[in-house]
């Protein structure tokens, strides 16, 4: 199997996009907590109870990604 050489920018972008998304969500949750508002988990929970299928779909995609990244089998 021949693949193009690694592009180092791809590694940087993959790491940065993931980290910035999570850091932004943590910062938002911290702001909500400091101002004594309903935390992000409470809001997501309320939203998930309103749209359970939507949330189940998102959880399915995320679980598939984790399995795809870390738990895949070699192609014969």
């Amino acid at each position: 199997m021949t693949v193009p050489p690694l592009n180092p920018l791809g590694i940087e972008l993959t790491a940065l996009v993931t980290l910035v998304l999570v850091a932004g969500a943590v910062a938002l949750d911290l702001y909500l907590e400091l101002t004594n508002r309903v935390p992000l988990g409470g809001r997501i929970s309320r939203w998930a109870r309103r749209y359970p299928l939507f949330m189940a779909g998102l959880a399915l995609v995320f679980g598939m990604m984790v399995g795809h990244f870390f738990f895949s089998l070699p192609v014969p």
Partner: peptide, 30 residues
């Protein structure tokens, strides 16, 4: 949350300034 944010910001700084990947890099399944 505060300590998580500090760790995340540290990781972002590490990814920008210190992340090194040696060539050739393996993409075989874990």
């Amino acid at each position: 949350l505060g300590s998580s944010l500090v760790v995340m910001l540290g990781l972002i700084g590490w990814a920008i300034f210190r992340l090194q990947v040696h060539q050739p890099c393996s993409y075989d399944p874990i």
